[in-house]
Design a protein around this nucleic acid. Structure first.
Lengths: 337, 337
DNA sequence: CAGTAATGAGAAAAGGTTTTCTCAAGATAA
DNA sequence: TTATCTTGAGAAAACCTTTTCTCATTACTG
């Protein structure tokens, strides 16, 4: 009954459960039940079917399975973050959380093109994704595509979501608090804050926390997210008369990088004379800075993990409370502070 | 016959071709043929079915379609490039090329974990991907997972492939040539080359082209892929006695960055006194360097595009010649040279 | 020993689409 | 008017799996 085997199996196309059933000499339904540990049958039969399936390398066709179960074990990740600086860690977290559940992820980079976004959303829906995670590069902007009233659950991660949805974001105020408290614990008292454009929600949150803890010793320096702004801001501060800061808390790692360069050019030592803390913990940047940069990590991987588990829960019909969830940042101490 | 409409349609679940057929008052087969522009029927019927499908928002279920056609319109992108510095542009190219064909991309980051790689490959095969593109961060290393004898076509992009497969890679020698020739066109004669570990194939290729064009004016400085190495190497060269270089060709943008910093610290002006060219054109780095970095772009997006079109061709059974295809680099001129 | 319960396994339907085959009606040719 | 051709449209099978239902056999219970 088990004769033939390899020669007979998979003659045309992939190996199906029909092949398993044929080789095992049972019906298709029995084979299915054996493999899924459902139904009633002799333990011996079940084991034999399983063994044969293993031997001939049977793997169930997810398309057929999905057609029936209405679960494709597939989700879509939509992002407008071209460089993937924020999205990649989020993606890593999602993937890590979902791979155990057999879920794969479609990554769709849509730039800021609404038409492209719509195309990708349609393609994902056609492919019956179990859910969609929307991600981005900014907490206070939403993707250029309408995700309300979709037939699948949508979760937002590091991008602005609709009020009645589940949204995950970093707790930037808490993260800024971590940085400033660390500087104060180091004995620093005059802490400057050089950051990005005030139009960014994150910037206002971080600056708010900074002011609350550090007091109004220094005016917040708003600018742009670039090294050159960090450089320029330091030049401005140290060009002024009066007492100089003994620490700089920067709005991101690029600004911090520029600031450190400027300080070195002024002959100021980091961290001996001035401590510097960055934000984002963009490792490839933070580790290469001289000295390596102490920075606030937004925990994007954990954020992705949570988003992944949440969209899965929604897809399985488990109830999830709507609202914004702030996930904590943590401080990665290197040598600049 | 077209009455009811919205109320009747999609009462449970998504809208299927059954709904279209019912509303249009035709059979399912007629509806299908109308929508696919196949079969024989009155032009009027065809148009009516199409209109109704549009009106009630019918979109065919890709799972069901794929089950029959054995095409899932899905491919998998496998990579061990954690930061996505190389993979993301490749991915962008793939996606751009394939979105027009309705193909979506599973992104699977497998680190360097063979077990994880196997899991992802199995998951992709279960989902009946039409093909797989393997990508990485290094031309002379292959992914830690066996992709031979898979039931779907595999194309390699920016990673080492099997001899009988299709492999796309950048033409590093040509790219290095571009850089050195540009420097010589600027009148530079003593060109130094600071680069990564000699164990990298790319390093040897680039160094080879450099030596061929620039001659043996300066010994190649092999090191690591870091800013600090760029910094250190410049310090070494300018610490030596004898004539100094008037240009530096760096193995990547991070090294170039370190080199420029070191030159500035020595009081040497870039590009007035010394021209510097980087490699990779890692925009987020190259644009922020002071001065902005002239760099060799490996054309990874084009590489991804080619890989995408190739895997699609193979999936459709069109013949593709095996072998390694070198794609040209181009020079992005900014201000450092 | 007759009747019921438990067990093992198969038949068939379902899921949504495409494709091939069949059939009826109307049109043309003889 | 009868035989053949064309046209329009539907029935059914196929893709692969899961699940529910049914049935036959064996093992008990009274």
């Amino acid at each position: 009954m088990e004769a033939g085997l390899d020669q007979e199996v998979g003659k045309k196309g992939r190996i199906t459960i029909h092949d398993v059933a044929a080789v095992a000499g049972v019906s298709i339904s029995t084979a299915s039940k054996a493999l899924n540990d459902t139904g009633r049958m002799g333990e011996e039969t079940r084991e034999r079917v399983k063994r044969i399936a293993r031997e001939i390398g049977f793997r169930p066709n997810a398309l057929a399975r999905g057609l029936l179960s209405k679960r494709s074990f597939t989700i879509g990740l939509l992002t407008n973050d071209t460089y993937g600086r924020f999205t990649l860690p989020v993606m890593a977290g999602i993937s890590e959380a979902l791979v155990d559940h057999g879920v794969s992820v479609f990554l769709c980079a849509i730039e800021d093109d609404p038409a492209l976004g719509q195309i990708h959303v349609d393609a994902m829906l056609d492919k019956q994704v179990d859910g969609i995670i929307a991600s981005g590069k900014r907490l206070d902007r939403s993707l250029p595509v309408d995700l309300s009233n979709l037939p699948v659950p949508v979760v937002y991660a590091f991008t602005e979501g609709t009020p009645d949805s589940v949204t995950f974001r970093s707790d930037d105020a808490q993260g800024a608090g971590l940085a400033v408290e660390w500087l104060m614990k180091l004995g620093r008292r005059r802490i400057a804050h050089i950051t990005g454009p005030e139009s960014f929600f994150s910037v206002r949150e971080r600056a708010g926390a900074y002011r609350e803890i550090a007091g109004d010793t220094e005016p917040v320096m708003y600018g742009v997210w670039s090294e050159s702004w960090g450089h320029e801001a330091v030049a401005k501060i140290w060009g002024r008369n009066g007492e100089k800061p003994d620490a700089v808390f920067c709005g991101n790692d690029q600004i911090a990088r520029g600031a450190i360069d400027a300080l070195r050019e002024c002959g100021i030592r980091v961290p001996e004379d001035v401590s510097v803390v960055g934000f984002d913990n963009w490792e490839i940047m933070a580790e290469q800075t001289r000295p390596p940069l102490t920075s606030v990590d937004m925990g994007l991987k954990a954020l992705g993990r949570e988003a992944g588990l949440t969209v899965l829960a929604l897809a399985e019909g488990r109830p999830v409370e709507a609202g914004v969830r702030k996930l904590p940042c943590h401080l990665v101490v290197r040598q600049s502070a």
